[in-house]
Amino acid sequence: MAKIFVTDAAGENPVPFLRGILTRSLTEAGLGFDEAYQLASEIRQQVDDSGSVTNDALFVLVRDSLRRSKSAEIAEHYASRRAPDTGLLVRHSNGDLLPFSRTEHVRCLAACGLTEEEAAHASGMILSDISSRQQREIASDELRARSQHCLDIHFGRRAAERYRIWMDFIQSGRPLILLIGGAGGSGKSTIATELAHRLGIVRTQSTDMLREVMRMLIPERLLPILHRSSFDAGDLVEPPRDGERDPLAAVVAGYQRQLELLAVPCEAVITRAIRERVSLILEGVHVHPGLAERIAARGDAVLVSIMLGVLKPEQLRARLRGRQRIAPERDTRTDPDNFRRIWHLQGHLLDEADRLGAPILLNDDQDKTATLVLRTVIDVLDSTEAAA
């Protein structure tokens, strides 16, 4: 299949057409993932022969397809999310004069704990206020002050204060290291992806991938416990000499052995991000709350450790079954015995988070949980600011 490029109105500045990006835009407009992916594939086929398409033409094509095949409401929701060309210029403190970015503005507003819809609405109100004054140029400090004032009036003083804290952090240039732990099925990778989008963080890593690299380097015959899942690694742990083997105690013992093995690559990834002053999201079952304590004194990075949990067994089973459709090799995870192990491991992780004072968030709803994580980040930044 030939590569397709999306250009500006003049046919310049081409960027590759990415079906995944369009799929995400369609899900944000209200389609389910399968519907969004299918429509994105159909749109790609429609522009396949031309080799390129302008932003405006692509937008019209998608909007009209939604009106025909889905609903006018979804089509309008999709259209409303498009950032208009306002012509507004922002003068930054270093003297640079750059076009106003609605996407970046919404992202900064969402980072203070608003939902994406609330952030988009707030950005629209702020932009309308600026337009009503017939301003074509605005200083970045004035834009920030207007944004904070809007949040204070429409979303409350705490929202405005969270925005101030986040903008101060952005301007400080310090990296954010966000650590997300939880048992299988708790939604770690989904939440990490959503947070990377909302915060504009480009560097993410999973402990599953770090473990897979280690497996390539160290064959199973040399280190068999590394090649097991976190919940059944305990099968390879020697039972105590003075008692019978406790299967659930072995789950924790096996996990701890893997945790020791993954600690070095996890610390290496974090240390490099801190050295390069790049924000990072590290997620996985091996992200233990104690990891943050071991690296807390390195550099000036802000470390936030979160533990996710799902306290309804049927909900966790449903999520594990959903993962089976994507990765069939994981189909043993909903077996009664293995599910019991995963449930027990989750209990251990939540106990550890509670013991070490790491925030525990129950992930019943992706959007709400992502917003709660953002507010937790702001709270940590606030406490760090107060301590300084």
Rank of each mutant, 00 (worst) to 15 (best):
L199K: 04
V269E: 09
A160N: 04
S189N: 10
R19G: 08
N94Y: 06
E314R: 12
S25D: 14
R330S: 11
I170Y: 00
I274Y: 02
K188N: 10
E220W: 08
L223C: 15
V278Y: 00
P16R: 07
L226G: 12
L236W: 02
G187N: 05
A83W: 00
V60M: 10
L361M: 12
E142Q: 13
A318P: 02
R174H: 12
T204V: 15
E267H: 01
L199A: 06
G322N: 02
K312E: 15
E42R: 11
H77R: 15
T384R: 08
L381Y: 04
T371C: 14
V264I: 13
H344I: 01
I306R: 04
T332M: 01
D56H: 03
H286C: 06
A120R: 07
E260I: 10
A40Y: 02
L259N: 10
L58F: 06
R272H: 14
L88M: 11
D208F: 02
E212G: 14
I130Y: 01
P219T: 12
A120M: 08
P84G: 03
V377L: 09
D335E: 14
L311G: 04
R330I: 06
A249Q: 14
T371A: 14
R228G: 00
I378H: 01
I360V: 15
F169G: 04
P16D: 01
Q38R: 12
E220H: 13
K3C: 00
I306N: 05
L280A: 12
D129V: 03
V60S: 10
G124K: 02
R136N: 14
A79L: 07
V373K: 09
A233T: 04
A145S: 11
I4L: 06
Q135W: 12
G51K: 07
A192W: 02
L345G: 03
A10P: 01
E161L: 08
Q256C: 05
F231Y: 14
V252K: 06
L58Y: 04
R375C: 10
